[in-house]
């Protein structure tokens, strides 16, 4: 069963949320998910762009008031 890892990157500026996401990707298995919380609106666009470029899978992107929740699934 897929596991979900949470990263709280609220308050971090670009490109730190993406870099934290990628560092964590190296520690999880294919099919596992990462949920990253971010206050950086640029990362809300940048993370899906990176996911598309390198061939992973996007999950839900949810606005949570003062931050966003972005879910990514490791596909390879």
């Amino acid at each position: 069963m897929a596991e979900r890892t949470a990263i709280d990157a609220r308050g971090a500026f670009c490109p730190e949320p993406l870099m934290k996401l990628i560092a964590t990707f190296q520690l999880i298995e294919i099919g596992d998910e990462i949920e990253i919380l971010t206050t950086d609106k640029g990362s809300v666009n940048d993370i899906p762009e990176w996911v598309s470029k390198v061939g992973h899978t996007m999950g839900d992107v949810t606005e949570m008031g003062d931050h966003w929740s972005v879910v990514v699934i490791k596909a390879k």
Binding site: C14, P15, L18, M19, I22, D46, W50, K53, V54
Partner: peptide, 11 residues
């Protein structure tokens, strides 16, 4: 640094 890091992790 930002360009280098982001491009490097984008294969």
């Amino acid at each position: 640094a930002m360009m280098a890091a982001v491009a490097a992790v984008s294969e």
